[in-house]
Nucleic acid binder design. Structure first.
Lengths: 182, 182
DNA sequence: CTCGTTTTTAACCACCATGTTCAGAAGTTA
DNA sequence: TAACTTCTGAACATGGTGGTTAAAAACGAG
C-alpha cells in the first residue's frame, strides 16, 4: 500500500498533541508505517513538523476564508450567525491545532503565520466593534484573544470527551457574546 | 554565594515557558549558576520539574484559598468582587503557570493536582449557578473551563506585554461575566 | 586568618533519538 | 510473469543530553 502524506500528518498530530517531544518511531507506530518511510517523505524531523504546521495553518485559513471581507452589517444576529459558522468550522480542527500550541520551536516562527491566518477574524471583530455591535470599553485585541481563549478551552473539553463539537461551538459563541451571568 | 532553590525555579520556569524541552545547561545559564549545582539541589531532571510544578501548584492553591468555602450569598456584586480578587491574585502567576500548560509529562500526572487546586473555584461557581447568579443553560464544568480559558488568554497577553496585570484581570472578569456584546 | 561548606571546572560514561545506507520484501503496473 | 516502485528491517554512525565523579576554587562564619 502506498503511504499517503496525510496518513503521516494525522498520526503526527495525534501523537505530538499528547507529547510534543514524541519520537519519530512513535509517530511511525501510530501511523502504522516504518520509521524509514517517514524519512522518504520528510528528510528531517523539522521538515515533518513544518509540513504539519503548514497543513494545519492552511486548514485554519480555509475556514477563516468564510469570514466576509466586506463591512459587517449593523445587524447583530447576522454577526452572530457568521461567528457561529466560523466557530463550527474551526471546531473539528482541535486535534490538529493542539500541537501548534505545544511545540514551541515552530510556534515562534509560526506566530507570524498564526497572526496572518487570524487576521480576517480580527478585522471582522474590529469592524463589528466599530459599528457598535460589540462593547467599546475593551481593546479589540482582547476581544480576539478572549475568543481564541474560549476556543482553546472548547477544544480541550472536546478532546477530553466532555463536550460534543456542535455543543462546544455553541458554548463558545454564547459565552463570548454574553458571558456567564444570567 | 549560596544558591537558593527559588533562584533555580525562577530560571527554570522562565526558560521552560519558552522551550519545554530546554536543556539543564540552558536553565543553569539562565539562573547564572553551573549545571552541576542543579544536580546538587535536584538529583534528576524530573525532580526539578516536579519541584517546579509543585511550587506553582502551591502558589495557585494559596490564591484559591481566598475563595470562601461557605455558600455564596445571593448578591451578584459580592460574587463578582471575590471573583475579581481571585483573578487579580492569579494574574502574577502567569509566568509560573506557562510551563504547566506546555510540559506534558508532568501535565498528565498533574491533571489530578490541577483539578484539586481548582476545586474551590469550581465549587464556588457551581454554587453561584445553583443560586441563580449565573446562567443555567450551560454546564457548570464549561463555566469553569471558559474562565480558565480567558485566564490563559490574559496571561498570554500580559506575557507579550500587550496588557498590564490589573487591566488583564479586569478584562477577564468583565468578559467572563458579560461577554463581548454591548 | 582559618576551617568547613558550597560552587565550579573538567573529564567521563551511558543512553537515546536522529539520520544514513542498503538489501530485500511487498506491492503495483503492464 | 516481468519490470518497476515503494516500503521495510536492520545495521551503523553521530551528536547531544542526563547523570556521575573528583579536585580545585570561591565563599562564609568564627
Amino acid at each position: 500500500m502506498v503511504v499517503k502524506n496525510e496518513q503521516i500528518l494525522d498520526a503526527a498530530a495525534e501523537v505530538l498533541a499528547r507529547r510534543p517531544d514524541a519520537t519519530l518511531q512513535s509517530i511511525a507506530n501510530a501511523a502504522g508505517i516504518s520509521r524509514t518511510t517517514i524519512f522518504n517523505k520528510y528528510p528531517t524531523r523539522d521538515a515533518l513538523l513544518d509540513a504539519l504546521a503548514l497543513d494545519t495553518l492552511m486548514r485554519i485559513g480555509h475556514v477563516m476564508a468564510q469570514v466576509p471581507s466586506e463591512e459587517p452589517s449593523g445587524r447583530l444576529d447576522e454577526f452572530i450567525e457568521t461567528l457561529a459558522e466560523i466557530t463550527a468550522g474551526l471546531m473539528p480542527l482541535g486535534p490538529r491545532t493542539t500541537f501548534l500550541r505545544l511545540v514551541p520551536s515552530h510556534g515562534n516562527d509560526l506566530d507570524d503565520h498564526w497572526a496572518d491566518v487570524a487576521t480576517p477574524l480580527a478585522m471582522y471583530i474590529g469592524q463589528a466593534q466599530a459599528h457598535g455591535l460589540l462593547r467599546g470599553d475593551q481593546p479589540a485585541r482582547w476581544l480576539v484573544a478572549s475568543y481564541i481563549g474560549l476556543l482553546f478551552a472548547a477544544w480541550d473539553e472536546v478532546g477530553q470527551g466532555e463536550l460534543g463539537a456542535t455543543q462546544a461551538a455553541r458554548l463558545v459563541v454564547e459565552s463570548w457574546m454574553s458571558g456567564a451571568s444570567r
